[in-house]
């Protein structure tokens, strides 16, 4: 599905602000994988997702998605088969547009022509799809998305992203900006949509418990590289304590600076 070989990303090369966010990283993702990614701030998790989605291009290395070399492919072209959800719930939808117009934009990927495709049939379809969220949004098709709460907006983004049938789903701490209850709702919806569509997914999270609970493979990143990669039974038997211990074993350093790592 994804083949990343020795990828490096350096920001502001040749200046005093030079910063290598990803260092010689290689990764292979199998079809159907649900990968969770943890790591402290600045470990390169978001940069990795940015590189995969194409919103930034690597300084060196190669990247293949679905057998195609996408190393230099612009983001909007990759978006045809990648669905991405950000931490900020406002990034996935347009607050100025109504719910139905938002869903219409996302109902088909790629360039939009001069067709008026939003009709009664499509509205009915949107309504049926919105029922799955159990938030009563099916009765608010004409409301501006700006009126929805953060949780509703993120759930809607998730639904719209899944409905556009991506081959790969990138989740960048997509529940971090929500309150605990809404975070749980959005996470369980994520799990359900991923299962139903057998979606290949990568989820960045700061929550160790979530990282262990969800997915079939766990990556831990530090200083721009993957330092731990567990899957299968090993992943199933993980606990937060074991994970922290493993981290210490690898790093052989006392890990005190980052509280996020111990959040449960």
């Amino acid at each position: 599905m994804i083949n990343i070989t020795k990828i490096t990303k350096t920001f502001n090369p040749g200046t005093v602000n030079e910063n290598t966010a990803i260092r010689n990283l290689s990764l292979t993702v199998q079809e159907g994988d649900f990968i969770t990614i943890v790591g402290s701030n600045g470990a390169g998790k978001t940069t990795l997702l940015n590189l995969i989605s194409g919103s930034i291009l690597p300084s060196s290395g190669t990247m293949y998605i679905l057998g195609n070399d996408v190393t230099r492919t612009p983001e909007y072209k990759r978006a045809a088969y990648i669905g991405r959800i950000f931490q900020d719930p406002t990034l996935g939808t347009s607050g100025k547009l109504s719910l139905e117009h938002n869903m219409n934009i996302c109902s088909r990927k790629g360039f939009k022509g001069l067709k008026i495709s939003l009709d009664a049939k499509k509205r009915q379809l949107f309504r049926e799809e919105l029922i799955a969220l159990e938030m009563g949004l099916e009765n608010r098709l004409k409301d501006n998305v700006g009126l929805l709460s953060g949780g509703q907006r993120q759930a809607l983004t998730l639904l719209m992203t899944v409905l556009s049938r991506p081959e790969l789903l990138l989740l960048d701490e997509h529940t971090a900006a929500l309150d605990p209850r809404n975070a749980e709702i959005v996470l369980s919806l994520t799990q359900r949509f991923v299962d139903e569509g057998n979606l290949t997914s990568m989820m960045v999270t700061h929550n160790m418990k979530h990282a262990i609970e969800y997915g079939n493979r766990l990556l831990m990143m530090d200083r721009g590289d993957i330092i731990l990669d567990v899957s299968g039974d090993e992943k199933k038997n993980l606990t937060v304590e074991k994970l922290v211990k493993k981290f210490h074993e690898i790093k052989q350093t006392e890990y005190t600076s980052d509280e996020a790592l111990l959040t449960t």
């Binding site: 983001e75 909007y76 978006a79 996935g92 939808t93 347009s94 790629g110 360039f111 939009k112």
Partner: peptide, 9 residues
């Protein structure tokens, strides 16, 4: 960003 994410240039 939303427009880009939907595969539109």
């Amino acid at each position: 960003q939303m427009v880009v994410s939907q595969g539109v240039n």
